[in-house]
Every structure is written in structure tokens, then in C-alpha cells.
Amino acid sequence: MSKDFIPGLVKGMATTARQMMSPTHTAEYPDVAPELPARSRGVIALVESNCTSCMLCARECPDWCIHIDSHKEEVPPANEGGRARQRNVLDRFAIDYSLCMYCGICVEVCPFDALFWSPQFEYAETDIRDLLHEKERLGQWVADVPAPPQLDPAAAEAPEVTAANKPTRGGNRPPRPSREPDSRGEAR
């Protein structure tokens, strides 16, 4: 028996007693909603009006869980004598969550901000076939998408802004105010 035996036992009892007096860590989940961190990956929501049916998400998806059907529609010319244009109309956008592995590549790759991560995670089903969700259901989740977190005021500027603000070779152009829409940059 070492000399630390009795102090060790007393210390153990003191630790448990202190823990009993302090608040518990239990998450009472179904009764109390959990506090999820920002950017939680719960489910992928679709803003239908932003989607151009470009198919980038469906092609990039590693396990081919996105189904897109669309057709082209003739848009009459806006001005007299103009050329009629075509646009894509989305017929079907479905994500099979029994296949989805939540990699988020589709959200990253979407050029038109049509896909977002929603923190909603309570969409379990009793049948695996019911996990194929159509665009109506995907659209409902948009309401849960949190606003993007504020930029850190001390953060470095985005590379595009830095490039635009770089003085020209003559050095006589005044620097533009940062973080404002840049018409040349957008057109590029």
C-alpha cells in the first residue's frame, strides 16, 4: 500500500462530490433542441428559383444521388425585333438521402447559390425509399438555412478584392473602396 492510497481515495470522493454539486452535461434532446454550431451539415436545401439546371451538382456528386430533369423554354424577345431566347426550366430536382454521403460538393460547386446546408436533421423515415426527396421538400428546408456568419472584421480581404485594389502600373488610379460590388469583376 503506497502512501498515496488514503489521500487518493479521499480525492476520488471529493471529485465525485464536486461533480454532483455542479450542473450536469446531459443534452435532453427531444425535449430541448440542441444548440448546433454554425455551418452544421444537416440536410441540403434547394432555392429553386436560383437553379439553372446546369447539372454541375449532379455531375460532381460522387455517389450520383442528385436527379435533375429539365426542359428548354422559348422566351419571347423583350424588345420588338429582338432574338428569342431560350432558358432552362427545372422539372425535377431530387436528392436521394439514402445515397448522399454529406460531402457537400454540390453546395460548393453550385455557381448560382441554389444549394445550401440546412441544420435540420430530423428527417428520418421508416422506409429507405422515402428518403428520396423532391424539390418541394428540398425547398421547405430553405427556411432553416441560417444567415451566413458575419465576416471577421480583422479577416484578410477576399483575393478578388485584393486584386482589384492593386494599384495600376502608373499608380495614379485611386484605390476603390473595398467590399463593394465591382462591375468589372462581376463581368469577368
Partner: peptide, 13 residues
């Protein structure tokens, strides 16, 4: 209950 609170849990609820 005592064991739960000593371990930072709530126990049966």
C-alpha cells in the same frame, strides 16, 4: 440519481 449527478448526468427522467 446520485450516481448520475456524480458523473455529470441526469439519470432517469
Amino acid at each position: 440519481k446520485v450516481m448520475a449527478h456524480m458523473q455529470g448526468r441526469l439519470g432517469p427522467m
